[in-house]
């Protein structure tokens, strides 16, 4: 059994420890935020935070995560009370199909936590691992600029 600390709460998980975190979040814990995009660490759809740093949850087995702080999209806010980054994305209507956006929000959250006013270049570099196929990038960048300074 493995204990995972997710959004501040402990969860006991019986699943095979080699299982990547993504599947445990989605199937065992019924959380939808992290998405399966490639399972290869190439697209960032599955991004969650580990001790405030972005990771590809599709690549990381739960066996190595005990004792560490995992934050998922669900930990940032709800539709009724979205977190500041979520709110900025909603305000900018920064989604088309939206499939990539949870991962984008998570990666942006990590950036804005450590940098209150990132430059455009810093945003681009930081967001580089995450793919969007709908071409929502320009809005995503606007949303991140809008959210700058609101994450504590």
């Amino acid at each position: 059994m493995i204990t995972l600390k997710i959004n501040g709460k402990d969860h006991q998980v019986e699943t095979d420890p080699i299982t990547p975190l993504l599947y445990v979040l989605r199937n065992d814990l019924k959380m939808n935020g992290a998405k399966f995009g490639c399972g290869l660490g190439q697209c960032g759809a599955c991004t969650v935070l580990l001790d405030d740093q972005p990771i590809f949850s599709c690549q990381i087995p739960i066996s190595i995560l005990e004792g560490r702080n995992i934050t998922t999209l669900e930990g940032l806010g709800t539709a009724a009370e979205p977190g500041p980054v979520q709110k900025a994305f909603i305000d900018e209507q920064a989604a088309q199909c939206g499939y990539c956006i949870p991962g984008m929000i998570m990666r942006a959250q990590a950036l804005l936590k450590q940098n209150k006013s990132p430059s455009d270049r810093q945003i681009r570099e930081w967001m580089q691992p995450n793919l969007c196929r709908c071409g929502t990038h320009a809005r995503i960048m606007r949303a991140i600029r809008r959210a700058a300074g609101t994450v504590s």
Partner: peptide, 14 residues
């Protein structure tokens, strides 16, 4: 858009 808030907060959309 109607569908955006749920998409951005982990609602079961897809």
């Amino acid at each position: 858009r109607l569908d955006i808030p749920a998409k951005l907060t982990g609602g079961p959309i897809y």
